[in-house]
Design a protein around this nucleic acid. Structure first.
Length: 325
DNA sequence: TCAAAGGAGGACTTCTAATG
DNA sequence: CATTAGAAGTCCTCCTTTGA
């Protein structure tokens, strides 16, 4: 695992081994001369100590203070992108054992203070979870950051490790845009220093209906290039797509990711004879929802993203007014 | 070792909203 | 109504990784 702190020695600098150089002294013969000599010696010693302290401080230059924090005081970030299957992987088990044998995490996580004397994770969710499972306090750097700085730092750390799946990235970006951290995909991509095309692809993955994502053994199996075909297959026939996804999700053992993908994108060529009527709703160019009028007389509205509480309130009010007409 | 797949990023196109 | 800027999506290329 790469570390932005690579190169920093977290151990205390070795104590100074400097030996004072013997000075040939001239013994004064008068009392004032002796006093002057004493003052001069004291000053010389103080200057030496000052230089020694300066050298020691220089050794710590750039170091970041860390502290041990009980894991129950640390909350996951609201932008946390780690899917729970990440904590079931062989890599995570290996990290947990490594932390256990070391008696704690050697590489600190980063947190920010929140109300109630608690902390929110900026990055290091896996190390936090590993410490939690080992019942160990977690070594952490504490820094007070605003939401946008937190998000940028979290993303930078994740990308430096290159172990975040496209779907997890998409969910993280989606949350940031929904929370209003960035006004657009381009602005988000600029802030993070990533390509907007890839942000768009990962967002497409994250906006797939949960049923489709659940068809895979893990959302981490979803790949960038599958985003467009999966979305198109779903929009072409939402009912059949969901039904097929549910069937795939219930299979044991789970089919390979490629097999799940192949099955899901083949839906549009096998449309039912009495296909439900589907109306796509777009906001700008992006498809945001589908209204499906089922064969049983029901009407279903499927949003392709999570709605904020305020939007749900607006939607609830609108439906109430619509049905009272 | 090599081919295939995955991932990142640039260039281009399309669409929409604002403005004159 | 034409123009322009901004945003999103698509296509393509290149590099890296992976597996046979």
């Amino acid at each position: 695992m790469k570390s932005k702190f690579k190169g920093i020695d977290w151990t205390a600098p070795a104590a100074s081994t400097e030996v004072s150089t013997p000075v040939t002294k001239h013994n004064p013969s008068t009392a004032p001369g002796a006093e002057f000599q004493r003052v001069a010696d004291t000053r010389s010693q103080m200057l030496k100590e000052n230089e020694s302290l300066k050298a020691q401080v220089e050794l710590w230059n750039g170091a970041v203070p860390t502290r041990k924090i009980p894991t129950n005081l640390i909350l996951r970030s609201k932008y946390a992108n780690r899917h729970e299957t990440n904590f079931e992987s062989v890599e995570f088990a290996s990290l947990r054992e490594e932390i256990k044998s070391a008696g704690g995490n050697v590489q600190p996580i980063k947190v920010r203070p929140i109300e109630g004397g608690r902390f929110e994770v900026i990055f290091g969710h896996r190390r936090l979870e590993a410490c939690k499972q080992n019942k160990l306090d977690v070594l952490a750097i504490v820094e007070d950051l605003d939401d946008q700085a937190l998000f940028v730092e979290m993303d930078r750390e994740n990308r430096s490790r290159k172990d975040l799946s496209p779907w997890e990235q998409g969910v993280m970006y989606q949350r940031a845009i929904q929370e209003g951290l960035f006004p657009s995909i381009r602005k988000l991509a600029e802030a993070l220093g990533v390509d907007h095309g890839n942000v768009s692809k990962s967002l497409t993955l994250a906006e797939l209906p949960n049923e489709l994502v659940d068809a895979f053994a893990s959302p981490l199996d979803l790949q960038y290039r599958w985003a467009k075909p999966l979305r198109e297959a779903y929009l072409a026939n939402p009912e059949a797509s969901i039904a097929s996804a549910k069937k795939l999700a219930s299979m044991s053992p789970k089919p390979t990711p490629a097999a799940v993908f192949a099955t899901l994108i083949s839906i549009d060529v096998a449309k039912p004879k009495t296909a439900a009527k589907a109306t796509k709703i777009t906001a700008g160019k992006r498809a945001v929802a589908t209204i499906t009028q089922g064969k049983t007389g029901s009407t279903e509205v499927h949003f392709q993203m999570q709605l904020s509480d305020s939007k749900i309130k607006v939607l609830t009010k609108f439906i109430q007014e619509l049905m009272n007409d």
